[in-house]
Computed example of a mutant assay.
Amino acid sequence: MRKLVMFAGLLLGLQSCNNPVKQEANARPEEALQLDTLRLALDWTPNVLHSGIFYAESQNWFREAGIHLIWDTPERDNYTKKPIFRLLEGEVDLAVGPSEHLFAFAADSAQVHAQAVASILQSDRSAFVAKKSSGINRPADISNATYLGYHTPLEEHILKAMIEYDGAEAKFGTETPDRLQVWDAFRKDSGEVAWVFLHWEAMQSELAEDSLNAFIPNEYGVPYGYSSVIMAPKNLDASQTKLIRRFLDICRKAYRESQDKPDVVLDAILDHIQHPNFVDHVFIRQAFADIRPHFGASRWGVMSDQKWSDYAQWLESRGLNDLKGHESTEFYSNEFLESK
């Protein structure tokens, strides 16, 4: 989208964002001048959800395709700014986040400003969880519990709907630690319920023999959308569109290899990523095995019209979002995944 013109400034930016990739993985200054720079904001701290991106980077596939990829995570500012806001304000070219962020933040009465161009997962791997020791065995039991939230749109409404679907009145309280501290607060019993990824936080608990009960929204009356989509601006010129297509082609190849050569892929990632999240190789291998089937290798990235429509209709039926007069089809596109 933009040619890199000042490598020194770029390097400073990478350091300030605490990007954990080895320095040698980045393009050399003279080479970077010939590449198209693509800035990506991840949705969370580095984890196996992002494995296709990390693997492609470890194999230099982005660089070979003429892309100088710069990615960072919410750690850069302790998650004070959502990735979608960074996208809407032009700080990044792509961002990862849940589909409801597009409905909530990416439109006004005049136009839609951002869209999903691919889904990392084909099935949702997020769930509300409670420790088995808490006595919470179903959503109805959450009625009077304390939920540790992220201060994001819809999370309390989704939990409320699940409790009501299970036959109880939702009277839970909510506390909001810093977003990156929610899991630590949950583990320290600051609250009974949290919304987490099954492949990550829930797997940490499983390996620590601290069992959880998990409640997936889709199983309790909420036709939840996509927990992890790659988002881009709505208005793109021809060169930007081509660059995003190139990026997604590489991602698709990498995520497919995670199905065909899982050990090779994971070994490469573990050698490549220098971040505290990837120190425990036993945990990482378990987490990777858990999430890998949900990448949907043969259909990686492709989004379902029905899923977007059902989620939008559910939101409207509960008075949570009128989409500001826009159709749900305006918020996503599979066209970037088509070969041109």
Rank of each mutant, 00 (worst) to 15 (best):
N144T: 11
I120P: 06
Y79R: 03
E209P: 03
F288M: 10
N47W: 05
M303P: 08
S58Q: 08
A65H: 11
A127Y: 02
L88S: 08
A56T: 08
A168R: 07
D189Q: 12
H281R: 15
V129L: 03
W44I: 00
D36V: 01
Q274S: 12
N334C: 08
F295Y: 15
F62R: 02
D178E: 15
K261V: 04
N144M: 13
S309W: 06
S211H: 15
L49P: 00
P217F: 00
F172T: 14
V193R: 01
S51Y: 08
R125M: 11
S51L: 10
L248D: 03
P262M: 03
V182P: 08
E209C: 04
N277A: 12
L69H: 06
E257L: 11
I84L: 07
A312S: 13
W183E: 08
M1S: 09
H275G: 06
A140H: 11
F128H: 01
P98H: 04
H157A: 15
R2I: 15
H113W: 08
V302F: 13
K160P: 06
T80I: 12
P29R: 05
A65N: 14
E155P: 07
Y311F: 15
M6Y: 13
A312V: 07
S16T: 11
G13I: 02
V96K: 00
R252S: 13
E175I: 14
Y220H: 15
I273S: 00
E206T: 11
E338W: 02
F247M: 11
G66N: 04
E169T: 15
N26Q: 10
V96H: 01
H272K: 08
F336N: 05
A130G: 04
S309D: 13
L248F: 03
N277E: 13
E209S: 12
A312Q: 03
H50Y: 13
S126G: 09
V112W: 01
G325I: 09
